[in-house]
Amino acid sequence: MSEAALLRLDGVNTHIGPYHILQGVELAVPRGGLTMLLGRNGAGKTTTLRTIMGLWHASAGRVRFDGAEITDWATPDIARAGIAYVPENMGIFADLTVRENLLLAARAGDIDDARLRWVFGLFPALKKFWSLPAGFLSGGQKQMLSIARAVIEPRKLFLIDEPTKGLAPAIIGNMIAAFRELKQTAATILLVEQNFMFAKSLGDTVAVMDNGRVVHAGSMAELAEDRELQHRLLGLSLDSHQ
């Protein structure tokens, strides 16, 4: 059972209506590290996360998580197996207060005090707006709430979709610090990101997607060194891309 990879996708294909989005994704997410999933818009990153979460089901291929095949599991069962998902559009419950949002995420019904203090340390704004309906939070605060909701209970794997999208640079700095903290807890994280600087500063391993396939997988350090490879895979040069 001591497989090196906590999550493994083998030849995963996903169709959405008539569109063939994922075309044989091969991906291994090592235990205890932060894996960056990079790629251009439309490469299939979000679809990969949603397929892992069972929000869309793979038409072919297998998804294995922690020794079990979860390809055909229902979303709630996948969540109960220990995967937390932070979608790109945040998906907070706007009518519920910050507190209620977090209570919902802590399925046991009560939030562990030490854990809550830790989350407040990561995102102080949440403490300040504890009793406010989440709909009143700013974009950055909503994003923080969304991540806090995922980390409020220890989980085996975090799937996080573009946490920095539309956020101001100062808040992105906060976010990087928060993810560093989360990494300290030996959590396994699969993070989709467009911001290469952000990705570079956090990632241990990296997978790059294009046209519904993983076209490169390796260590983040290696990709960060190799400008030619970056240019070829991501169509970017570090100098012009912040």
């Binding site: 979460m53 929000l55 229902a74 979303t75 709630p76 969540a79 109960r80 998902y85 979608p87 998906g91 907070i92 419950f93 706007a94 009518d95 519920l96 209620e100 209570l103 919902l104 995420a105 399925r107 019904g109 909701r149």
Partner: peptide
């Protein structure tokens, strides 16, 4: 009750409630 909170979560965003592990 906690049950009522889950109901409101379902009303607002059913997929999110599922992704949090609730069998809606």
């Amino acid at each position: 009750s906690p049950f009522g909170r889950v109901l409101q979560g379902i009303r607002e965003n059913e997929f999110r409630a599922e992704a949090l592990g609730y069998r809606t």
